[in-house]
Design a protein around this nucleic acid. Sequence first.
DNA 1: ATATTATTGATAATAAAAATCAATATCATT
DNA 2: AATGATATTGATTTTTATTATCAATAATAT
Lengths: 145, 145
Amino acid sequence: MKKEKSEFKEIFIKYIEDKGMRHTKQRELIVDSFFSAGRHITSEELFNIVKKKNPEIGYATVQRNLNLLCESGLAEEIKIGKQKTRYEQKYGSKHHDHLICVKCGRLIEVNDEKIEKLQDKLARANNFIPIKHKLEIYGICGNCK
Amino acid sequence: MKKEKSEFKEIFIKYIEDKGMRHTKQRELIVDSFFSAGRHITSEELFNIVKKKNPEIGYATVQRNLNLLCESGLAEEIKIGKQKTRYEQKYGSKHHDHLICVKCGRLIEVNDEKIEKLQDKLARANNFIPIKHKLEIYGICGNCK
DNA sequence: ATATTATTGATAATAAAAATCAATATCATT
DNA sequence: AATGATATTGATTTTTATTATCAATAATAT
């Protein structure tokens, strides 16, 4: 019974190797934990998860590897208001926007193809080549109404 | 010849008074400078402008009053990437979104009524009451192409 | 096995914004 | 106009999140 390697891991390993970097136990643990954790995690939360599995691991290493995940395109920073930066998984999920509850802070992922198209049109109408975008809608979620 | 008071000033004064706060020379200078400055200014930039007119003024006072402007709804923080927070004038301009050039950092203000409507619809379809939103489109501006 | 060098973990440095606090300025009341 | 209560200021310190530093260690090629 062969143990399948998740695709995000292959992508990450390729990224690491292409840059002449090395594969380490810490790296593997951090990346695995990141992808099996919630979709919007802080470095501190990830550190706490990782520490349980390997108490030797340092905060700096978690931060560094989260940064690496961002550079590789597998993760992305989300900064909302004064909150700590959260890291979002970018693998295995297509682009989406966020509804952000101003009461409980919940993040809801949404997508609307029509909006995407109009955004592209809007950019081009301004002689602007769009690369990516971020849409955040703040309001009150169903739970908090 | 009566000197007209700008409306943003009236709004600000009302906000200050309603909270039992006081009117000061520093406050007035900072608020005036903010509204006659560029539309997307950092606290440091504003401090430098203000310092020329009154060298006694401290950085902390500028920061504090920018925060007050935000609380009053007359200004809003814009945080882009690792850049310093910029403060945008919210008075006398209707809601708009931003095209952000990833090369030169230029901010272009845009608006699309159709997108606005679809955003509202999208939120409500998710049992979510929208209050405000932020749309940032990153790409390459006309100058940088 | 060995040499090279990337990574780690602990800690220090950095940077932006917020908090602190004594001195001062504002403003309602007299 | 003088007084008193207290909000504001300016200088400084603290806080908080992230990045940089560096000696020790570990990963990889030879």
